[in-house]
Amino acid sequence: MTALAAYTTSTGEAFQFWVLGTVAVIGALCTILMRKAVHSALCLAGTMIILAVFYLANGAYFLGIVQIVVYTGAIMMLFLFVVMLVGVTAADSLKETIKGQRWLALLCGLGFAILLFAGIGNASLKDFNGLAKANENGNVEGLATLIFTKYVFAFEITGALLITATVGAMVLTHRERTERAKTQRELAEERVREGKHLPPLPAPGVYARHNAVDIAGLLPDGTPSELTVSRTLRERGQIRDVSTEALNDLRALEQRATDRLERPDLRRTDPGRNGDGDPAAERAAAVAGEQTEEASK
C-alpha cells in the first residue's frame, strides 16, 4: 500500500473505498437516527473503525492505529460509560419540539454538503503526490521527527491541555462531602423520629407475582407502589408498570380457553398467539408489548 500510484488508486483500494465508504455513511446516518444513545454509540464506533481503515489506506499507519486504540477503544468506551450512567435503556423521542428546527437543520446540512462538494469540485486536486517519499523512513519515525522538531511547542501545549482537561473533569464531577456520612444507627433513629417509614422498604415484586428489581410491587388494591423500586431506577424512569399484568393474564386465560374450545373466529383475530399455555412466554410477550407502548409515548 505504500507504493500507491500518485494519480489513481489501485483497484483494491477503490473497491475497499466504495464498500467501506457506504458502510461508513450508513453508520453515520444510524448514529444520528437511532433512538437509543447506546445504539448511536455503537454505530459511531463502527464508522470510526472504518475511518481507521481509511487512514491506513491513505498511508497514515500511526493514525490508523491510534484511531482504533484511542478513539474507538478509549473515547467511545467513555461514551458508553456515560450512557450507562445516564440510563442505557432510555430511548429518546424523535419528535421535534422546536418548530421548524428539523427542516432548518436538514436544509443547513444539505446546503452545507452541497457547498463543500462544490468547493472540493472546484479545487484543482488532481495531482496527488502520495506518501511514498515521506514514509520511506517509516511513518511513525516521520511523524516523530515532525512532532519533536517542527511541532514541539504545539505538542507541549497539547500536553498542558490534557492535564487541564483532566483536572477540569475532576473538578466538574467531584463533589466534596461537607458532612460526615450518617451511620446506619443514625439513619434508623432518624427514621423513627420522622415516623414516616419505620420498617425497611418493601422488596420489589414481593406482593405481585414478579421478581424483578424494576417492577414495582403491587399494593393489596392492585396499584403499584413506587417505594418498592430502587431509587436509581425510579430517577431514571425505568420502572416497569405491571398493573395491567393481571388483566393480561386473564385475557391470556380466556385465549387459552378459546383455543381449547377451538373457536376459529378468535384465532383469526389474534394469529400471533399460540395456545401452548406456557405462562413464561405469555408474560414475556406482554412485557414486550408494554415496552413498545411506553416507548412510543
Binding site: 422546536i98 428546527q101 432548518l104 437543520a105 443547513c108 446546503g111 452545507f112 457547498l115 462544490a118 468547493g119 472546484n122
Partner: peptide, 21 residues
C-alpha cells in the same frame, strides 16, 4: 434552545462560505 442557536451559527457559516465563493 442551544440547538436553535446552533442552526443560526451553522446557517451563518454556510452563508459566509457562499459569500467567499
Amino acid at each position: 434552545y442551544a440547538r436553535s442557536y446552533a442552526v443560526s451559527m451553522f446557517g451563518g457559516a454556510a452563508v459566509l462560505i457562499v459569500a467567499t465563493l
